[in-house]
Computed example of a mutant assay.
Amino acid sequence: MFNALEVVTIVVIGMMVGVEFSVAFVINPILNGLPGDNGLRGRTHGARMLGAVMPFWYITSLVLVAVWAIAGWHHHGTGLVVTAAALLILSVIMSLLLLVPINNRSKTWTTDDLPADWKEQMNRWDRFHYVRVAVIIAAFALLVAALT
């Protein structure tokens, strides 16, 4: 049963890392390269869609890692799992304090009511997102290392 928990946790977090990585390094660069307001439309739609899903995914990931740490407290690699949990907590805090406020504003934007600094806000969101991606990749790598 413990092995199943490890596998499910790795898969759930690995998929989350993949989605967030693709947003940072594939989707947003594609959207930024589109002509006119098409990229903005894509980003606002993504903010609504992923903004609804990702909070559950992050919390589920954190719960799975917490259960892994508790259930495997006396197993080899628990320190790595606890460190991964701390990084996931950091990613949630970053999301709530830095990314969600920008996301909440941007998901309501249309080309008729854009704030003057909308590009700056998108660039700020991207920079914070790059850091968050690095944090969750590090957490994922620690969890994989804890398996060995």
Rank of each mutant, 00 (worst) to 15 (best):
M1Q: 05
F2Q: 08
E6T: 09
E6C: 04
E6Y: 04
E6H: 07
V7W: 13
V8M: 07
T9F: 02
I10F: 09
G14W: 02
M15D: 00
M16F: 09
M16W: 09
V17C: 10
G18R: 04
F21R: 07
F25V: 13
F25Y: 14
I27Y: 05
I30A: 06
L31S: 02
L34D: 06
P35D: 06
G36A: 06
D37E: 09
R41E: 04
G42P: 00
T44H: 01
G46D: 01
G46Y: 06
M49N: 01
L50H: 02
G51K: 07
A52H: 02
V53N: 01
V53C: 03
P55Y: 08
F56W: 12
Y58N: 03
S61E: 03
S61T: 08
L64V: 05
V65Y: 01
V67G: 02
W68K: 04
A69E: 00
A69F: 01
I70G: 04
I70S: 05
G72Y: 07
G72L: 05
W73N: 04
H74D: 11
H76G: 09
H76S: 13
T78P: 08
G79M: 09
G79K: 10
G79H: 10
V81N: 01
V82H: 05
V82L: 14
V82N: 01
T83I: 11
A84T: 00
A85R: 00
A85K: 05
A86W: 10
L87P: 02
L90H: 06
L90M: 13
V92R: 09
L96H: 11
L98P: 02
V100K: 07
N104K: 14
R105S: 12
R105E: 14
S106P: 01
K107R: 15
T108A: 14
W109T: 13
W109S: 10
W109C: 06
T110Y: 13
T110D: 12
T111Y: 09
T111N: 08
D112G: 15
D112L: 14
L114W: 10
W118I: 08
K119Y: 10
K119I: 15
E120V: 15
E120K: 15
Q121G: 07
M122Q: 11
N123S: 14
N123Y: 08
R124V: 13
D126N: 15
R127D: 11
R127L: 15
F128P: 03
Y130D: 10
A134N: 12
V135E: 06
V135C: 14
A138V: 12
A139Y: 00
F140L: 14
L142N: 05
L143F: 11
A145W: 15
A146H: 06
T148F: 13
T148H: 13
